[in-house]
């Protein structure tokens, strides 16, 4: 049994079932309508049921067929990269583009084994921030606050 629990097919199936069931649950009150006037709930219901069925098929397959194991999860890169991206969104409004970019780069770079603070990389970072400010904010007029609300802008 523990072997099945390591298989990719098992977890993919579980993911399909979970997402399909969630979609069905959220969409349960959408009107189904008739065949002439199909309601907003028609497609979601059909699709979520189909996804759940495929999920069961995948789980079933993991019991009967040889399959690869999922393997170790790379927690450090996963958390740092996803976290850095989300943090960029938070900091953009409060501290502005410059700080948000620096944090995004430093946090995401920390996910690499080769990460260390060095002069060359720091210059690169400053250049990157300057490039973004000039091209996106000044050149293209993307409304990114260079300095955020905490600076009283």
């Amino acid at each position: 049994m523990s072997y099945v629990l390591q298989k990719k097919d098992f977890w993919a199936g579980a993911l399909y079932i979970a997402l399909g069931a969630a979609a069905f649950w959220i969409g349960r009150d959408y009107p189904m309508g008739s065949s002439v006037r199909m309601g907003a709930g028609y497609f979601p219901a059909v699709l979520s049921v189909a996804l759940v069925l495929i999920g069961f098929a995948s789980v079933a397959r993991s019991f009967f067929q040889e399959g690869e194991a999922v393997g170790a999860i790379a927690w450090k890169p996963l958390l740092l990269i996803v976290g850095a991206t989300a943090l960029f969104g938070v900091l953009l409004q409060t501290l502005g583009l410059a700080v948000a970019l620096i944090v995004l780069v430093l946090v995401s770079a920390a996910a690499s084994q080769h990460f260390r603070i060095e002069l060359k990389a720091s210059i690169g970072l400053v250049l990157l921030v300057a490039f973004c400010a000039l091209v996106f904010v000044k050149g293209l007029g993307v409304p990114l606050p260079l300095l955020g609300s905490w600076f009283g802008e």
């Binding site: 502005g96 410059a98 400053v126």
Partner: peptide, 15 residues
Amino acid sequence: MTALKLLSAAILGVA
């Protein structure tokens, strides 16, 4: 905060 502001402005090269 003004110092920070000036510094950032200088970094950004934005007059």
